[in-house]
Amino acid sequence: MPDKTKLGVGLFLLSEAIFFLILLLAYVYFHSVPSDGPSAANSLNPMRTLVFSICLFLSSATIHLAGRSFRQGERRGVSLWLMLTVALGGIFMFGQAREYLGLFAHGVTVSTNLFGCTFFTLTGFHGLHVLFGLGGLGALLGVAMSGRLGQVKPSGFEAVTMYWHFVDAVWVVIFGVVYLWPRLS
């Protein structure tokens, strides 16, 4: 029988995926309506965001390595890779904050137009999920640093990992649709 924790987290992520799917559909639905003012094409900088995105993508690899160290019982490796994961996630959040401040400075907010409201809703909820994941990673890191890693169940570690991969995967889709799509046409 499958592990109940992994199954539970998997189902939770399924419901999260559908939540994001609806926000994404709302974005796509309104993206096809031509409108004046700020849009993805004239307000976003895909290259700069790509740099921050790569940090998030890399963090999927580092948490994978943290998990490998965890299974092999290498405490130092776990702490190191987790620290790197948190740092990469933090850089991504920093990037998103800078992007938001830049948009605000140009008068693009959630109430500006349809692009503003769909963009900030979609990426904002993703950002909240990254923050939440950083909390989980931080908790794991704290446990690892204080040398109580033996009390962490493998399935618990796996749950945080699954969540983090999910947050990453959602960003792959968002990056593709929000940042790359307008460049293709």
Binding site: S15, I18, F19, L23, S111, C117, T121
Partner: peptide
């Protein structure tokens, strides 16, 4: 698990419309 998040997504969009003056 599959359909309640659809409602939740709709609800947050409506709430953002109402509280943050958005346009969904």
């Amino acid at each position: 698990v599959v359909v309640m998040p659809i409602l939740n997504a709709g609800l947050v969009m409506l709430l953002i419309d109402r509280l943050l003056n958005a346009h969904f």
